[in-house]
């Protein structure tokens, strides 16, 4: 059993990372698209009132500026606060936010367990009365993130079920998968909560499990903890089949579409990209397209002769 938990946990982590990477690469490798930015572009110096660079430099700016840091900070902050929802849809925010906080904390909880295990392996016990400060810090951080995650997540899961059921706008667009997701996450969070209360009140077992995981020396845990470990692994494996990646794709959507105001210059990488894309064939069927030619051939035609009926 203990070996099974180790194998399952490793599998779940490798699986989710691999799936996310594959998906991210797929999106990243899509061809350059036409400019379709939307203002305010948050990293523009004058984004406070929405202005972009076209306003000052007549559209021909060459430098990119420090946009990455500003944009990432903005999105991270948004991911932690859900400010957009808070402003526009407070009732929904009230359940959506705890649900997501549950995820963020459960991820933090596992990262802390991982590093906590390293601390233990290095010879510093992680306990409430550890002689090492670092041990104490890890002890309390793991405890707090874990407990808060389970409570917030469980509250959010139940809240979302009720909210999706009671709000007619949300209900009309809900699918059975939505409810399945809420119930599944509810079980994951509740199993953690149960294990904490009845089997592992200081997460000593959980830390020990992680130490065993990293040193490849499986330790046995109480059934309640084992159940939570199995459920959490299944949850990780299931995630790539949901829209969960929006946490990451959001960055793509903002950086590569909404804020993508990179201008095109002669000799630029953008221009080289476009030259290649314009040579792709067009096979749309409508008569005015006269398909079978490339984008370049179609757009370069000097005069348009045929009128469609």
């Amino acid at each position: 059993m203990s070996l099974f938990l180790v194998v399952l946990t490793y599998f779940a982590y490798v699986f989710i990372i691999a799936m996310y990477v594959v998906k991210a690469i797929k999106i990243a490798r899509l061809p350059l698209h036409l400019r379709w930015e939307l203002y305010p572009v948050i990293y523009e110096p004058k984004s406070k009132y929405g202005s972009g660079f076209q306003e000052d430099e007549k559209g021909w700016r060459k430098s990119q500026g420090k946009k990455l840091r500003k944009g990432i900070l903005y999105l991270l902050k948004e991911n932690l606060r859900f400010n957009d929802y808070f402003k526009s849809n407070r009732g929904y925010w009230l359940v959506l936010f705890p649900w997501h906080i549950g995820f963020i904390l459960i991820v933090a909880f596992h990262i802390l367990c991982f590093f906590g295990a390293l601390v233990i392996i290095a010879g510093n016990p992680v306990t409430a009365n550890s002689v090492y400060v670092i041990g104490k810090i890890f002890y309390y951080c793991i405890l707090i993130t874990g407990v808060f995650s389970f409570i917030a997540g469980a509250f959010g899961s139940i809240g979302l079920i009720l909210k999706r059921q009671s709000d007619k706008n949300l209900k009309a667009f809900a699918t059975p998968q939505n409810y399945f997701n809420y119930i599944f996450t509810l079980i994951v969070f509740l199993s953690g909560l149960y294990a904490w209360i009845f089997a592992d009140p200081t997460f000593a077992q959980y830390r020990d499990f992680w130490r065993g995981l990293l040193t490849l020396s499986p330790v046995s845990v109480e059934p309640a903890t084992a159940v939570h470990i199995i459920l959490f692994s299944l949850f990780l494996v299931y995630l790539p089949f949901t829209r969960s990646m929006h946490y990451i794709t959001k960055f793509f959507a903002f950086f590569w579409v909404r804020w993508d105001d990179r201008p095109n210059f002669r000799g630029s990488k953008v221009e080289r990209n476009i030259t290649g894309l314009l040579n792709k064939p067009v096979t749309w069927s409508a008569p005015h397209i006269k398909s079978g030619r490339t984008w370049a051939e179609i757009t370069a035609e000097e005069k348009y002769h045929e009128k469609t009926s």
Binding site: L30, P31, H33, Y92, N178, R243, H246, A253, P281, T283
Partner: peptide
């Protein structure tokens, strides 16, 4: 497809696959 719609494929897929059905945009 990348040939027929390279012009908007990436924004399209990002909009198709990651809507959370939260209806915030309605207002």
């Amino acid at each position: 497809s990348k040939e027929n719609n390279w012009t908007f494929l990436q924004p399209l897929l990002l909009s198709i696959d990651y809507c959370a059905r939260c209806q915030t945009c309605n207002d």
